[in-house]
Design a protein around this nucleic acid. Structure first.
Lengths: 243, 243
DNA sequence: AAGTGGTCTAGACCACTAC
DNA sequence: TAGTGGTCTAGACCACTTA
């Protein structure tokens, strides 16, 4: 995994960009890079494409490859690299202490809706996991998740009080890399107000999503109600389609 | 543009998937496709990668290429294809009539923040465009946009009452294909309540974004305050990084 | 005309899965 | 062991930009 040619070059170029090595904001042309790295031009293209998809560089046919000026200026909005699977990860970097309080944990039969979303057969069971997430003792998110027992039979109360994704990745070697997310806003309910410390006039952001494993297996359906001050979802959209 | 090999194959495969031609949910292997389409395997891979990025198929090394079961089941959440540059486009399909009311339109010097975000020199001017967007006479979004006069010198009051992106694409041939979006939620202000018909307790969703042209030129900074019932932002996230 | 990125090919070899 | 997707190469030719 770590020995992929294009990936190493991608990382190296990213470091060189961050180190401000290319003051002209222009990268060497692909044929030069091919020669200096001692790899084929295809591999260079592939590395550059990954960087372009992350919004770090952009390519202009006939002119060259340039560094996105916003990348160095405003690195906070370019957090694609780490993860934007959910808010969870976006807050890890703050140096604050993340906490998880388990509100509810049980096994129930999958509703019809869950059967569809998680691709389950009638009669299959799911964990229902309700958690309150905080940073430095201030709660920011109520998370209601459903995970089929079939895909994660080893879950228990203790494991659910930490990162389920991390536990699952450690235990099985497969990771959660794809998701559909829907983002909406909603007035806060009484429960939101109590758990998140909101005034009645203050809203929550709602993120609903289905998370998938590498191989396409649906892993979790999650509904997250988030203190409006903490919802901050960043995306980089590229409609070029080809990536 | 329309004669690209991988693009044509991509479209053809998408049609065949939608026509339910592959009942086993499994596509032919890449080498067979290569032969039957009469192109190199690289081109097949490229076509398949685009489909995989759209979440339509997924590939499993050693096993084959499969159709994402959710694609056929729940096509509504897969609207990546059309556009998710903003809410604007997501609502076009509803068969409702979109309306734009121009609230304000002037030219002002770019603030420091705008200079940074739009990559302008001090002293440059931008259009400030404030619009209220409705469907069937019910307002759903207040849009405050800033566009450098340098990149769109031909804007006028009339053109701003329609789709600026469409006008610009028609006029110049370059289109807006990339964006950074930040999504948050916010209690509604008095103005929000008046313009969008909200109760004081009802919130707005806020989408802020920078839109870029193909070549990376920043085109617009936009701040959209959206009636919470109409904010519905869908994304497909793929952390595989390589695309 | 020279330079640069884009598309496409033909084929070698590797890594993983299923039988 | 056979089949499948992943990585990588070396090179041809095309399309666009700049001078």
């Amino acid at each position: 995994m770590a020995d992929l040619v294009y990936r190493n070059i991608m990382k190296d170029l990213k470091n060189r960009i961050q180190a401000n090595e290319f003051e002209s904001k222009k990268l060497p042309d692909e044929r030069s890079l091919s020669e200096s790295y001692g790899v084929s031009r295809s591999s260079i293209k592939r590395a550059l494409n990954v960087l372009a998809n992350q919004g770090i560089i952009f390519k202009k046919r006939g002119s060259g490859t340039f560094i996105n000026p916003l990348y160095q200026k405003n690195q906070t909005i370019f957090q694609y690299e780490g993860s934007n699977l959910g808010v969870t990860d976006s807050f890890k970097s703050d140096g604050q202490t993340p906490q998880i309080k388990l509100l509810d944990f049980k096994v129930i039969p999958a509703s019809e809706e869950l059967q569809t979303e998680l691709f389950l057969n009638p009669g299959e069971f799911v964990y229902e996991i309700k958690r309150l997430r905080s940073f430095d003792d201030s709660p920011f998110m109520i998370e209601l998740g459903y995970i089929p027992i079939r895909v994660a039979p080893e879950l228990n109360k203790e494991r659910v009080e930490g990162s389920i994704f991390n536990y699952f990745e450690d235990a099985t070697g497969t990771s959660v890399t794809k998701s559909f997310m829907t983002i909406t806003a909603d007035p806060s309910t009484k429960e939101d107000q109590e758990l998140l410390g909101l005034k009645p006039v203050e809203p929550v952001g709602v993120m609903e999503g289905i998370f998938f494993l590498d191989d396409g297996t649906p892993f979790e359906v999650s509904n997250m109600r988030i203190h409006y001050k903490y919802l901050n979802y960043n995306t980089f959209v590229n409609l070029d389609e080809d990536k």
